[in-house]
């Protein structure tokens, strides 16, 4: 069996890159839906529609745009990761107690000031939890990248399917599932820590 380490690293890099981009876009869209009321339904609706599109269909269509390779799978992961991040950002911001918002306004804070000083810190644990969900899902979806010429742990899995080899399939699958479990565990711990340290408590 060939060395798995480079594949694991590549897999992780693809997922991290995608979730980073998605976090920037998703949190911004979450804030936008919170600020500009009529947009919230549309943004959340579109994000949900995107998540409903079958993975292979979305990746194949993105391949037409971006060609074969890592860029296409990253684009696909970014789109799939948007939904949990936008939703959690939005819910987090919505859940801020009204008296806090009033107080901030009373102190003469502008909207961006309120956002940075009060609202984001308060909703941080929820936003973080959205990113966690996105990250764990992406680890699993990234396996599909092999079908559109991307790297990562999809390769040994696909090769295992082609050669009827359980050993090869597992050599790709076990690291994926393990990484997902470890990240989920660690980030859940961090999330709890954030909740404890949150200004709300």
């Amino acid at each position: 069996m060939s060395n798995l380490t480079p594949l694991i690293i590549e897999h992780l890099l693809i997922v991290l890159a995608a979730v980073a981009i998605s976090a920037v876009i998703g949190v911004s869209l979450g804030i936008l839906s919170y600020w500009v009321r009529p947009l919230d339904k549309i943004i959340l609706w579109v994000a949900e529609i995107i998540q409903t599109i079958p993975t292979l269909a979305l990746l194949a269509m993105l391949m037409i745009l971006f060609g074969l390779g890592n860029i296409t799978i990253i684009a696909g992961l970014v789109l799939y990761a948007l939904m949990p991040i936008i939703r959690n950002t939005y819910i987090g911001l919505e859940a801020i107690p009204a008296h806090l918002k009033d107080a901030a306004r009373g102190m003469g804070m502008s909207k961006p000031q309120q956002l940075i000083k009060i609202e984001i810190p308060f909703s941080l644990p929820l936003i973080f939890s959205g990113i966690k969900i996105a990250l764990v899902n992406s680890l699993s979806i990234a396996v599909m990248g092999v079908l559109i010429g991307a790297g990562g742990l999809g390769y040994p899995i696909y090769r295992g399917i082609q050669t009827n080899s359980l050993e090869r399939i597992l050599s790709g699958a076990i690291p994926v599932v393990l990484m997902a479990m470890i990240l989920d565990y660690l980030m859940t711990k961090m999330e709890k820590w954030m909740v404890r340290k949150s200004p709300q408590n």
Binding site: E10, L12, L13, I14, L16, A17, V19, A20, I21, A23, V24, N70, I71, I74, K117, I120, P121, L124, M194, K197, S198, P199
Partner: peptide
């Protein structure tokens, strides 16, 4: 203080992720 900590944490995560992006690209 806590808020700063949180923002630092996010900033660090972002830097990590953007580096990842650069490497993957």
């Amino acid at each position: 203080k806590i808020k700063k900590k949180g923002i630092k944490l996010i900033a660090a995560a972002m830097i990590l992720m953007v580096t990842a992006l650069a490497l993957a690209g």
